[in-house]
Amino acid sequence: MTNIPSPGHPAVAAYLAQGYDSVVGMSSRFAAAICARLLRLQTEDGVGGPLAEIGAFEGRFFIALAHALEPGELAVALDIFSWPDDGVKGRFEANCLKHGVGPERRVTVKGDSGVMTPAELMGHAGGSRFRLIHIDGEHSRAALAKDLVLATACLSEGGLIVLDDMLHPGYPTLMVTVQAYLEANPEIVPLCVIDRETIVGATKFVLCDRAWFERYQARLLAIFEAYIWPLGADFEPHWCLVLSQDTRLAEIT
């Protein structure tokens, strides 16, 4: 494992080093380490509770997130679990067990986020709001718009929404949905952009409540100093950090 920040959790670090690549999936190890560290940051700032992943697939990213929770906190995995075949749910469950996330620490939900109400989603976590929701479901504008509405309604104070496959060449219109969402929800802002490792391990956006932005940003500037791309991201008019394994600027001669 090279050029990966500390995830802030020994169990996450062990999984990233020894098990992450063995679980079929598309999310990058770099993004998993950063999101796990964000969960640690939340804990240190008094933000606790469950997390949810919309589009858990075979569990690669979910397992990393689950290991970053505190004792007694639940990780909820929501997926239609029918793509690419009906065996994906069994593989998800087996991967979780193999890598130390037992049924006492997770809830597996076979369902469609597009028709789920906030009360139904929170009901899978005992009625609690979520401190982090990772959206990696159907990659269409309509589905992402619905998932963003659902996530926003279920988020706790100080909570984070993480969006997968942003700026992916295979899904270029998803950014249109994100921009429309941000314009319609000015209380939510981008906290940071997590740069891609590869086309497969694509970019993620992390969103937070505007009231929490400066608090989180100050911590990120200190924790991830070596991974900050100097120019940042301009969301017009909001600016946020870009975290990358390659922080070089273009040479202009």
Rank of each mutant, 00 (worst) to 15 (best):
L38N: 05
W83P: 04
L41I: 14
A153H: 09
I54G: 00
E58G: 03
G19E: 05
G159Q: 00
Q179F: 10
R105G: 07
M1D: 10
M26C: 12
I188L: 09
A11W: 02
A11N: 08
F92P: 00
W239H: 15
M26P: 00
L249C: 13
A184Y: 03
K89F: 07
E70P: 05
M116I: 05
L144T: 06
A52L: 07
V193P: 01
G49M: 01
G159R: 00
L132Y: 07
E44G: 11
Y216T: 08
I133G: 02
T198W: 10
P230D: 10
Y216C: 06
I223T: 15
P186S: 03
G8M: 06
Y181P: 02
D21P: 02
C240F: 02
A75L: 02
L121R: 02
A33L: 12
E120A: 15
A52E: 02
E197Q: 14
E187T: 11
L221K: 14
D112M: 07
L97S: 14
K146D: 12
V178C: 03
I133W: 03
F30K: 03
S128M: 13
V193R: 11
H99G: 06
V178E: 01
N3M: 07
A13Q: 12
H168L: 04
E251H: 13
L148Y: 01
E157V: 11
R196P: 01
R40L: 11
A66D: 04
L69D: 01
T173F: 07
A184L: 08
I80Y: 06
A56T: 15
V189Q: 00
S27H: 13
G102L: 08
V242P: 01
L51W: 01
G123W: 02
A64S: 14
A211N: 13
E187R: 10
T253R: 12
A153Q: 10
D209G: 12
E120M: 15
I188C: 03
C192Y: 03
A151G: 12
P10Q: 11
D136Y: 05
E104Y: 07
A94L: 12
L16T: 03
A184D: 11
T2P: 03
G8Q: 04
T2F: 11
V47R: 08
A151T: 10
F235S: 08
D164F: 00
